[in-house]
Design a protein around this nucleic acid. Structure first.
Lengths: 348, 348
DNA sequence: CATGATCGCTAATACGTATTAGCACGTCGA
DNA sequence: TCGACGTGCTAATACGTATTAGCGATCATG
């Protein structure tokens, strides 16, 4: 491992081709403006030397000079491990990578961001955001203070998933949970359900709030529309509660909880959807083994990733007019867990 | 989208604190050498201003000046889509990200590299390698010319997976396929198998070559040790061939092919491992639905990712002495597809 | 032939940081 | 009182590129 030989620079190329460094830069950038002209012979000569030496411009210097990098930062909020949340991020990343490739950008994963108080921080001692032209934010819960600061600094970013205002509107590409859950509620009511319960994950994120809002907007037409928190570990108690209430359908935020509920019901000799209908409100975020096809909806994760990159590039190059906020529709999934309620004993 | 307000620089900090830009830099980098002294009051004053303004050094300028960036490049050779190869890369990336986080490096995915003649190229017009301090190379087949060039340029890199020399030894962290396959062959022989066939994927990669080598080294002790290419689509013909040859065990490079063979055997009323033993030589690279637990070995993909980053950081900071080449052991998996051969009719 | 206009290129500078030689100002010892 | 030395800082420069004002030469035009 000898000392690295100094890399070839434009100055070297210039010397070899008998021109100035500026000329090399102009040739390299294919500048053909009215006020920048290079004779074809000169251009060819420079290009030949470049080809011979295999020169490639240093992207760092380039960025320093021009303020653009063709690098898109990706910040994942929740700790990437254990691989549970990995499977959550993966579809987004697929879409992001696909679109980044299309527009010729590299992706910078901010893995160096330190975890402080159990959560990754964008802003810290050695903040590296500016390495990228702009940044995508991924994560169920995003720190509002950090959004404030991004807004204040005028740093180009786009959140994947809807976000409340934080010192100004937050640009995002999200999923339209409210409408999707509303549709499911309509379906349930159309099937004859009158008493229903919404089982929340108990986290305080916008994604959760939107689902609940969609539920309340539509389900409030029913005889009874409750909501309560629930986890998979809780399944037995939750099931008790549903039965006691006479709910014939549950809207389950967390996929794993739905699986656990179905299993608990089966153990008691109850059937889904015969005795209880279950609706799931998004794809599983953790791999859960189940044979059952749940009725619910699909989050367009890949498409969200793609469009987030698209919006971000717009924000970066300034071609975006106004605040960029998009909600993508979720596709309803016709599964086997929504049925008609048992004809109930009339209640007084 | 108004014009971006110029970001705060060291010069601004310097002006506010009444010192020079150099002093700010020195304070920031906590320099305490013998020949660099800053009075505690001055240091505090500068630090206070930094805290007030929320200043953070521009990593780009920093890199230009210091030649180090704490960025690790990741180059994936095979086209990332369809998501089949995605599942192949994923475990590597998990390990890579984990270790990168540990050493405080960001990851740069070279998604901008163009695909030429059906394969991604590192070197092209607008080569962005130098954005990273060094680079990891992923992919079953890596272009030897590009390795040559990396070696020639003295660019720090590490391949994930063993590579043949390319104008010099190639630093890598690979899996010890030869030993693993050799072990499987020993197992087969110990169980009484005497006629065996190796079914290759027919690609010309080092990973394939190593497996074959391990097979030949050990299996050649058997009565007959053939090898031939095979694909999943081919399963019927391959099965004919195995039976005709009297092979009682097959070493199957491609997981999907093993699945297809078992299915074909079952259709003919043959049982695995009763009539034919199947050994797989690595985890599935494409999700294949199967209930069967195949006997074979596990590739330590995550660990390979981690160690690749570790080695790369060593190469970058120059603390690596000599060429870095590591082979990690594969863990044997005791499945249900290796049995004892039917007591065969004596052959003359 | 004088005067612009156009062409082809270069010199100079900016980008924001890290590094280093060295300056100004003490202080101390003889 | 004078050099030697230590302290605390700054001026200058490098890193490699992009950009722009502008210079000399050539060309067209009256």
């Amino acid at each position: 491992m000898t000392a690295t030989p100094r890399r070839v620079t434009q100055r070297d190329i210039a010397r070899m081709a008998g021109v100035s460094q500026a000329t090399v830069s102009l040739v390299l950038n294919n500048r053909a403006d009215a006020d920048v002209r290079i004779a074809p012979e000169t251009r060819d000569r420079v290009l030949r030397v470049i080809a011979e030496t295999g020169y490639a411009a240093d992207p760092v210097a380039r960025r320093l000079a021009s303020r653009f990098n063709r690098i898109i930062g990706v910040f994942t909020y929740e700790p990437a491990f254990p691989s549970g949340s990995r499977d959550f991020f993966h579809p987004f990343l697929l879409g992001i990578e696909e679109y980044a490739e299309r527009v010729g950008c590299d992706l910078l994963l901010f893995t160096s961001a330190p975890v402080i108080d159990g959560r990754r921080r964008i802003f810290h001692q050695d903040n590296r955001l500016r390495l990228a032209d702009g940044c995508l934010l991924l994560g169920r819960e995003i720190d509002a203070d950090e959004l404030h600061r991004l807004n204040r600094d005028g740093y180009p970013y786009v959140a994947v998933g809807r976000r409340d205002d934080a010192g100004g509107p937050v640009p995002y590409v999200g999923a339209d949970y409210a409408t999707a859950v509303g549709r499911l509620a309509e379906l349930a009511i159309a099937r004859g359900h009158r008493r229903m319960t919404y089982l929340s994950m108990g986290i305080d994120a916008e994604s959760s709030e939107d689902r609940r809002r969609g539920y309340l907007a539509t389900a409030s037409a029913a005889e009874s529309a409750r909501h309560r928190p629930a986890t998979a570990a809780d399944a037995e108690a939750v099931l008790d509660d549903l039965l006691a209430d006479g709910s014939t359908v549950a809207f389950v935020e967390d996929f794993a909880t739905a699986v656990a509920l179905e299993r608990a019901a089966r153990r008691r000799g109850l059937s889904v959807p015969g005795d209880l209908s279950l609706l799931t409100l998004g794809d599983p975020t953790v791999p859960v083994p189940t044979e059952l096809a749940f009725t619910g909806f699909r989050i367009p994760r890949e498409e969200m990733g793609r469009q987030a990159v698209e919006v971000l590039t717009r924000v970066i190059d300034g071609s975006a007019s106004g605040v960029q906020q998009r909600l993508l529709p979720c596709e309803l999934v016709e599964g086997a867990t929504l049925g008609a309620p048992e004809p109930a004993v009339d209640r007084p």
